[in-house]
Design a protein around this nucleic acid. Structure first.
Lengths: 210, 210
DNA sequence: CGGCGTCCTAAGCGCTTGCTCACCGTCAGG
DNA sequence: CCTGACGGTGAGCAAGCGCTTAGGACGCCG
């Protein structure tokens, strides 16, 4: 039962989850879901990782599915905000797209446990919760598509199939959560830089000095 | 065993699974696993889809995990063969790479239920079975990397980071299994053509008439 | 001190899980 | 006819599941 280890760190990951015990449970759930998947994770496992009894979970969350929903909702919000910050920034379409991919990929690598739950455990949500999350995803799609369209309109990009390329770009970024490994040779920054370059090639951006 | 019959495996999806009842169970398992995931699927569900009693499953398979292993093994073998057929074919590096991506993606779209199980349910395998499958994946990785290296060596491609680009190409192709939907607007052929083009851009292949 | 709300636990309920086992219909060989 | 192997079933077991409930420890206010 380790105690004081809280406010340390810059922007601690789940600071917005307010009752302290609820946050510990949620963090434990993220780890367990990412490791074994939602259905293979038991409420006893989650509570155990948080150093609590199985019943404690139900004081803060109505069901196990609500826990997943909370994780998924917050995770999608954060990822979407990261994307939009770059997409709505200044600069040419190529600069904004590269920036968006770089930071979006970096987020998926840095928070690959969260991202894995958020991106790959969607089917475990109930119908209502899933449609809510799908709506958030469509917003990510729109953000990327808009940047590509901007670049096509002003001649920066050469893209025959904008919706298809948008799909591919997002698919590429999201799949980082599946394969990224902390023990691997690449840092999140390196992957972000690599992917930003690859995406610029995909949209046929003219090479430019920066 | 079969001598020349195995090449007919493309006609009937799971023709190589020889006891007829065993094949029906396996097909049912593929559908169920793809729909709900391995852990959320019950043996009663699988047997029910195959029109049999729950106990029938254990006449042909020792455990539920063995069923997943069989599916994963056969699926990976087929996907790898598709990749290699194009990779080992004639033509320039660009032609072979485009061909490989096109057919690999088409396979993942055509058999997206199987591919989903094969690519995303790997963690549900036991340790032994998982390492066996991981070895197959490394062979896919090598096949793609070799093609890219060929293109770089003879000046067809411009690729600063070959291992990273290899990873990205495979990631892009594999993720097709996650999002592809039969009810969607794109056919497997269209996705294959789109992705072949995108990959050629990623490796900096000089544009060529098609 | 007692009363009360908050936060947690021990115990366990009802149900489902992966899997087993005693048994049975079918059919070829004698 | 019988025999026995084969491929199947109905019933059910032990274990584990998500979740509930009665009650205890603790702190705050009077």
């Amino acid at each position: 039962m380790s105690t004081a280890e809280q406010t340390e760190g810059d922007d601690l990951p789940w600071g917005e989850v307010t009752p302290d015990a609820a946050r510990r449970l949620l963090v434990a759930a993220v780890e367990a879901f990412a490791e074994r998947g939602y259905h293979a994770t038991t409420t006893r496992d989650i509570a155990g990782r948080a150093g609590m009894s199985p019943a404690a979970l139900y004081i803060h969350y109505k069901t196990k599915e609500e826990l997943l929903h909370r994780i998924s909702r917050i995770g999608h919000d954060k990822a979407l905000r990261v994307l939009r910050t770059a997409a709505d920034g200044p600069g040419s379409a190529a600069e904004r797209l590269a920036d968006a991919v770089r930071s979006f990929v970096r987020w998926h690598a840095d928070h690959h446990t969260t991202a894995r739950v958020v991106q790959y455990e969607l089917d475990a949500l109930g119908d209502e919760h899933r449609t809510e999350i799908v709506a958030l995803r469509r917003q990510s799609d729109a953000a990327v598509r808009d940047m590509i369209n901007d670049g096509v309109r002003n001649g920066e990009f050469d893209v025959p199939d904008v919706p298809g390329t948008t799909l591919a770009v997002l698919s590429l970024c999201i799949d980082v959560a599946r394969w990224f490994n902390v023990a691997g040779t690449r840092t999140p920054d390196e992957v972000g830089a690599l992917y930003a370059d690859l995406v610029l090639r995909m949209v046929g951006a003219r090479p430019q000095a920066s």
